[in-house]
Design a protein around this nucleic acid. Structure first.
Lengths: 135, 135
DNA sequence: ATTGACCTTATAGTAGCTTTATAGTTTTAA
DNA sequence: TTAAAACTATAAAGCTACTATAAGGTCAAT
């Protein structure tokens, strides 16, 4: 299987595959005589794993960590669960922060309507005056 | 006022101030004979404005846009409000996406406990099997 | 023989800084 | 007075996770 086929199979761009290889997330495949990369099913599975992790919002470093656990399958999976727990609490704090931000933005927006000049704009005044909650 | 004092006043690093200047967000200040930048209160206000916008999650490009409106204060402020509306809906869709992600992560986490080996880890199996909701 | 589709590497661009390197200036303490 | 500490300057690289571009080699079909 060449790089283009693998890319289409998993739904990524060829450059992304080369990038993962360069980052050490995907093992370097064998090469044909002409230098073309040749992939096996194992590569396909590994690439799909990476992509699913990315969809879950894991960083490449975290994926790397997960792979290192997979390479040593007889240790307890405590660290895997801890990694996920950390990620969940990270996502939750992002949500909390964004909700607070939304509230702030909505109240800022409410301080103006469209019938004013920039000079009298409630939104710009609101930002400029700096009566904002910290963080 | 020199760059270090301004930085301390507003709570940013000196490099950030130079960076904003380079990006055209902060007007180039006068220089002393030795080349040191000399800032006025206007610079302080402008920098504080930038920082508040950043806290609100606006991009440097959006801040630039807001500044261009401020520089022409007699047009209607429709565009300012539109920019904020766009930003609010952007934040809202981020929240929605993160909430869906959280749900997915929590259900994945529920498929394992800490008393297994990596080989039998429900979390890793869940990711590998790929029974994930798209997007 | 040449077009088109595929592959290769290397390099730069994205956002918003932060870090590092190297060097000149000013202030302060010995 | 001098030497160290603290400040300033510029330029360039690093961060994340790719994406895009450039310049070129390979292969099948026309």
């Amino acid at each position: 299987m060449r790089i283009g086929q693998l890319a289409q199979l998993v739904g990524v761009e060829t450059q992304t595959i080369r990038f993962y290889e360069q980052q050490g997330l995907l093992p370097p495949p064998d090469r044909q005589d002409n230098g073309y990369r040749v992939y096996t099913e194992k590569h396909g599975e590994r690439l799909a794993f990476i992509r699913r992790c990315r969809i879950l919002g894991l960083s490449l470093a975290e994926i790397h960590e997960l792979q290192s656990y997979q390479d040593d399958p007889h240790q307890p999976c405590t660290a895997v669960n801890a990694l996920l727990d950390d990620h969940i609490s990270h996502v939750r704090s992002q949500i909390t922060a964004l909700q607070a931000l939304e509230k702030q933005l909505v109240s800022l927006r409410a301080s103006c309507n469209d019938d004013r000049e920039v000079e009298a704009c409630g939104v710009l005044a609101g930002i400029s005056e700096g009566n904002m909650h910290q963080q």
